[in-house]
Design a protein around this nucleic acid. Structure first.
Length: 524
DNA sequence: TCTACCA
């Protein structure tokens, strides 16, 4: 990766020692500030206007950057005060400690792990949105209407963090409500529609996910006039989006970058930037595009946030270089699968064996909707033609299809018209299909993260699901890593797999034999 | 070394 050339990498080389003195001074000052502020009552805390942080737009502030993951220890050491002030201070300190204990308890209960300075208290319930943050009734109404009764762990913590004007990166299991966790505070902070240009941007790695996020955001904003736009080809063709009012723009990276290059829109006033499925977005090939978008969002007080179910260390390191005093929120264990999914491994000796096993399982128990993942577009097409004549309502989705074909595939699957959807990893991330009963990894996933996201299409929003991963001889060296994920989420794994040698694994894409069965006359 | 991502 080209360090130094891109904005995202710009902060990575800064010299910690060089800034050590500044850092120490900064920390001292910050701690005394924190104490005074935190001493206020909770109501005040909610009403407190967010401090406008003035800073340079280009390079991450080294002092804050250095400090990002340090947990704050608010102590009054070294401060000289008279008696009156001292007693007020100790009163404030007690109050603060009580709140800290309460927060810690709530976090423990919901498996919320945090790091960062002065992290806001987690939500006990959605009604705190109005008592602490003055949330308008339309939003509370929509939450209730859409069936959100209790905040999920990620929502409990990430919403207050973002509402306090803090940058955030968040890792929470698939299907645990991350979209709501960033859209809800966004709507609250934007307050109402405005014609001030584009005010918030959400980036998603696929068009399907972008469309889904746009739809969900609109549902949440219902009854309030907000301009929420999905950046589509049509929208770009129909002339300047710059002339249209737009509060929230949702796009895929490449489309947004090309629009920026053609000067079709202006991101200089963007106040909020969300990178959804951030680890995917930071992958080689997509980073450059993200970089262009991040650069174009030149407003110095922008709040950026990263969300994903998988958060590899290198993404955290990159994030550290662009984020300012960010709060890190991890729900449960990092990079883990939902515990609601029953995960199984199945051996197949050959491609023919795979196909046989799949057909067999459909005959025995087809419990739609079912998702079948394969490793390439070609194989998706092949498997589709193979199954198309079976007595099953089957469909395919991959990026070689036209936009409308892709949309239809998703819609039909959502509507239950398609029982079995064959797919590449296009829909492996973020897509929320209601009640997927089973995910079949027909081809072994190419990384543990891919595995977690694929199987995460089922077992969403508290429902249970099933995941079957077919493996061949070629996949055996990679089995152990998947087995670790399974074991960590409470599934049983054969002992021989756990005894396999451990290995670091970047990408696994073996050459596989053709899916289709040989023509009958050759079989003899 | 190819899935996804513009024209």
């Amino acid at each position: 990766m080209e360090k130094g050339t891109s904005f995202l990498f710009s902060g990575i080389t800064f010299d910690k020692k060089k800034f050590a003195a500044d850092f120490a001074r900064f920390k001292e000052k910050k701690e005394s500030d924190d104490l005074v502020e935190s001493g206020k009552s909770e109501a005040e805390e909610g009403a407190r206007p967010v401090k406008k942080r003035k800073r340079k737009a280009t390079v991450a502030d080294p002092v804050e950057g250095f400090n990002v993951f340090k947990t704050s220890k608010s102590s009054a050491q070294g401060i000289q005060q008279n008696d009156q002030e001292k007693s007020e201070l100790s009163q404030a300190k007690k109050e603060l400690n009580r709140q800290i204990e309460k927060d810690a308890l709530l976090r423990k209960k919901h498996n919320i792990h945090i790091s960062g300075n002065n992290v806001p208290s987690p939500l006990e319930n959605f009604s705190e949105l109005s008592s602490r943050y003055g949330c308008e009734s339309y939003l509370l109404h929509n939450l209730a209407e859409l069936g959100f009764k209790e905040p999920t762990p990620i929502q409990r913590q990430a919403i207050p963090v973002l509402l306090s004007g803090r940058e955030c990166f968040a890792c929470a299991p698939t299907g645990s409500g991350k979209t709501l966790a960033f859209v809800c505070p966004m709507l609250m902070k934007l307050k109402h529609a405005s014609k001030d240009g584009i005010r918030a941007v959400i980036l998603c790695p696929t068009r399907e996910l972008a469309a889904q996020t746009a739809r969900e955001s609109k549902k949440l904003a219902k009854g309030k006039k907000f301009y929420i736009k999905l950046l589509t080809k049509e929208l770009l063709r129909s002339g300047g989006i710059s002339k249209l009012p737009c509060d929230i723009l949702i796009s895929t990276p490449l489309r947004l970058r090309s629009a920026i290059r053609k000067k079709k829109l202006d991101l200089s006033r963007v106040e909020y930037l969300v990178l959804d499925e951030s680890d995917k977005l930071f992958e080689l090939g997509l980073v450059k595009q993200i970089d262009a978008v991040v650069k174009a969002c030149s407003n110095p007080s922008i709040i950026r946030s990263l969300f994903s179910a998988t958060l590899p260390d290198f993404v955290e390191e990159l994030a550290r270089t662009i984020m300012h005093d960010a709060v890190r929120v991890i729900i449960g264990r990092k990079n883990s699968a939902s515990e609601l999914i029953k995960q199984k491994l199945v051996f197949a000796g050959s491609e023919e064996g795979k196909l046989l096993a799949l057909r067999q399982s459909f005959v025995e128990s087809l419990n739609p909707p079912v998702l079948v993942f394969v490793q390439s577009k070609e194989r998706a097409k092949e498997l589709y033609t193979e199954l198309a004549f079976d007595d099953i309502r089957v469909d395919v989705i991959h990026a070689d299809l036209s936009q409308s074909q892709r949309e239809n595939a998703v819609d039909d699957f959502r509507a239950g018209k398609t029982w079995v959807l064959i797919a590449t990893d296009v829909i492996a991330r973020g897509m929320d299909f209601k009640g997927v009963n089973c995910v079949i990894n027909y081809d072994f996933p190419d990384s543990p993260a891919a595995y977690i996201h694929r199987i995460g299409r089922s077992g969403r929003a508290g429902r249970t699901g099933e995941a079957i991963t077919i493996y061949t001889e070629d996949d055996v060296p990679f089995l152990r890593n998947i087995a670790n994920v399974m074991a960590a989420s409470g599934c049983e794994v054969p002992a021989w797999i756990m005894a396999l040698p451990k290995m670091k694994w970047k990408k696994h894409r073996p050459q596989r034999d053709s899916i289709s069965t040989k023509p009958k006359d050759q079989k003899e």
